[in-house]
Structure formats: C-alpha cells, structure tokens
Design a protein around this nucleic acid. Structure first.
Lengths: 115, 115
DNA sequence: AATTCATGTCGTATGTTTGCGTCATTAGAA
DNA sequence: TTCTAATGACGCAAACATACGACATGAATT
C-alpha cells in the first residue's frame, strides 16, 4: 500500500496555529474586511445592498459572504425574497480572543537579541 | 489606448482595508505563526534553528522568513556565517493596533438586526 | 586556495483563491 | 399559473501561494 504524499503540510502544525491561520485567511481580503465594516455600520444588511456597495459583481460578493458565514463571522437570515446578513457576535468575539492571545504571546520584550 | 483589465480588483478598496488584509495574509499560514511564536520563545533566533524546528524544508522556511521580514514583523541580523532573527517590536505593535482598531469597529451591538 | 557550512535566490510543479458568467431555485407579483 | 426578482451553486480561467530541489553566494576553516 502506497500513500501518495500531497504537498499540503498544514497537518504538521499545531491546532492553535491552524486556527489562527484560518481566521487570518478570512480577514486577508479587503472585500471581506469591507463587508464586515458595512455590516457593522448599516442596520439594513440586505445582501443586494452589499453587492451594490462593493466594486465587485454580485456573484463574487456572494462568494465572500459564504466564506465569512462559514468562518462564523456573520449570519444570514432569510426574509421573504431577500436575505438579511448580520455580524455574528459569537464569532467576532472568538476571533478577538484568538488574535488577542497570539499578539500577547508574541509581544517582544524590551531586551531584544537583535538591536 | 486600451487598458487591459486584470482580474485583481484590490485597488478598488480603501487603503485601510488593504492594510489590514495584507497583514492578515501574512498571518494566514501556520508556519508563519509558528515562526513568530518560536522567535518570541527562544533567545537564540538562528535561522537554521528555525528550519530544524519546523516540519518544512529549509528553503520553504527561508521563504516564510522573507515574507515576515517584508511585512516588518521580524528583523534579521547577520552574525558571521549565521543570521539571527528576532521579532520587530515596531511591526508587531503596528499589527496589534491595526487589528485592535478593526475589531473594535466591527464589534456588534447587543441589539442585532438578526436574531 | 580549496573546502565546508549557513543561508538566500531561482525555477518549477502543484494547490488555492479570486472573479464572474450562467444556470437553478425559490418567493412574491401580475 | 406565469413572470420577475433576489439569491446561491457550479464551473471555468487567470492570478497567486506553497513547497522544494538545485544553484549561487559569501564567511569561516583547513
């Protein structure tokens, strides 16, 4: 039995590192940042409004919305023909904690080995 | 004069959004997270030690180090034949502030439109 | 000078992301 | 019921990221 070795080596890292990397990846595109900011700022949150707001096609925005939803950062609620999106408080808090913990961990001391 | 339209539309977003996205992209791979944690934890910081520590080839680690350096998160200091890497306090602080500001901005209120 | 060692650069193969047109679906309007 | 409107799913093409072997470079060692 031969196991084909794939290129992907992510499995070799710790779970916490993968978790941070995954949430960072979601935040690694300006469109998704813009969507989160839009949802934080507007009370209406209709999907179409978001596409209209962004300089991207409706299809592309829909894809970004799916990514954000999958990451647990937003929620979608059907409302008749339209879909109302909102920030997911729980997911945002989780992200906040993940980043907070990491940033605290990697804060360099005043006494650095390099000058 | 015809301008060929490229697929990449990042230019259409605000500078702040691009800045956050860029730093998030650097954090979007477990190897780079692991490197930052390693540098925070070890006083020696020699490039070779990092490659030995990670489950990746020396070449690949070198590439990740380059990315981190380019993002201003680490510094490299030549020391004879070896190179000593350290966290870049300034860059880490900058990242901390960027994420902090964004996370504050997109913190949902208790009164959410979705349930 | 020749060798060795630590490291970076280049080229390449493969995987992943992005963007968008087209189609399917489903709710409301006519 | 038929039509229209809002949206997600599918699939393709281009761009980008990842991994790494092979080569280049430059400092120490012999």
């Amino acid at each position: 039995m031969i196991f084909v070795e794939t290129m992907r080596k992510l499995d070799l890292f710790e779970k916490g590192q993968q978790e941070i990397a995954a949430i960072a990846k979601v935040m690694s595109h300006p469109a998704r940042i813009a969507i989160l900011q839009f949802l934080a700022a507007t009370p209406t949150c209709i999907s179409g409004d978001i596409s209209d707001f962004l300089p991207l096609s409706r299809t592309t925005v829909s894809q970004h919305l799916k990514d954000l939803k999958h990451a647990g950062l937003i929620k979608g609620e059907v409302e008749g023909l339209k879909i109302k999106y909102c920030l997911n408080k729980k997911g945002i808090e989780k992200m906040k904690q993940l980043f907070g913990d990491l940033l605290e961990e990697i804060t360099p001391e005043e006494e650095n080995n390099c000058l």
